[in-house]
């Protein structure tokens, strides 16, 4: 099993005592699987994913287990944690401009992790970077390597971020609203690229989104989160039909659906 979260509880220290934000979350992601995590803002989706990489403040207390490729992230040493964060897992955020340094060339951002973290030599890293840019569907990758983020559109930039995420050959991808800021057609393009990469490399992916239609259409399995709990687990293609929990049904009924689709 690639990612296994068991009974994850997280408490944040607040001035008036501690606040529990995750109430025993259980979820798992297998190799080659796309797993959706849906819920409204404040439900704890992002917190769960961040906690899976032990990204929470020192003052917070976290119990339960998070296994990434057999390593318990919550209890392992700094070196093992560093290896999990830099090699095993890659994270893709909503805002690609926030993930890339605006004053550095795309090529430098792309190869940085390879050279400094994984110790690949510069020429090999550049070759690999170019190859990755081609793999995410960017034309003229050699030219792109020399450009700056501001010369790219949002969709192109998110592809660069995906390429950077793939550079360390991770096993698991955590995508946190990775396409929410994009136009629908661009979103589809980026997701097509991401799925191609995921399938050909047999990666596991945890896909966080607030778009229930997207989760249903894109994910193999979907977890529904509400107030720090997983309330239901469903097959993606059965999300709208098979939901039993009241919260899930309410949520699904609130979503406007497009009629007269599929031409």
């Amino acid at each position: 099993m690639l990612l296994e979260i068991k009974n994850l509880q997280l408490d944040f220290a607040t001035p008036g005592g501690s606040t529990r934000v995750l109430h025993g979350v259980d979820l798992h992601v297998e190799r080659g699987e796309v797993v959706g995590l849906v819920g409204e803002s404040g439900s704890g989706k992002s917190t769960t994913v961040r906690a899976a990489l032990r990204l929470y403040p020192q003052s917070a207390s976290c119990t339960g287990t998070v296994n990434v490729n057999g390593e318990n992230v919550l209890t392992c040493g700094e070196d093992a944690l560093h290896s999990v964060r830099s090699r095993e897992v890659a994270m893709i955020h909503q805002d690609p401009r926030g993930s890339l340094n605006p004053v550095r060339r795309i090529g430098d951002s792309l190869t940085e992790r390879l050279v400094h973290v994984l110790g690949v030599d510069k020429f090999a890293a550049r070759a690999k970077g170019t190859e990755l840019l081609r793999a995410v569907g960017l034309t003229q990758p050699e030219k792109r390597m020399r450009q700056y983020p501001h010369e790219f559109s949002g969709g192109m930039l998110q592809r660069v971020v995906i390429a950077a995420a793939l550079s360390s050959e991770p096993q698991l991808i955590l995508a946190d609203e990775a396409t929410s800021a994009l136009d629908v057609t661009t979103q589809a393009e980026v997701l097509s690229v991401l799925r191609e990469a995921q399938r050909s490399r047999g990666l596991g992916m945890l896909f966080i989104t607030h778009d229930l239609h997207l989760a249903a259409a894109y994910c193999d399995r979907v977890y529904v989160m509400f107030k720090g709990r997983i309330v239901e687990e469903l097959e993606g293609n059965n999300l709208f039909a098979a939901a039993r929990e009241e919260y899930t049904r309410e949520l699904l009924s609130a979503v406007p659906s497009l009629k007269g689709q599929r031409l």
């Binding site: 944040f12 607040t14 001035p15 606040t19 934000v21 803002s41 404040g42 439900s43 704890g44 989706k45 992002s46 917190t47 961040r50 990204l55 929470y56 403040p57």
Partner: peptide, 14 residues
């Protein structure tokens, strides 16, 4: 952004 993320990023109360 979710409230939980805000908590993570919030500086210690001054």
């Amino acid at each position: 952004m979710s409230t939980s993320t805000t908590l993570i990023n919030a500086p210690r109360k001054r």
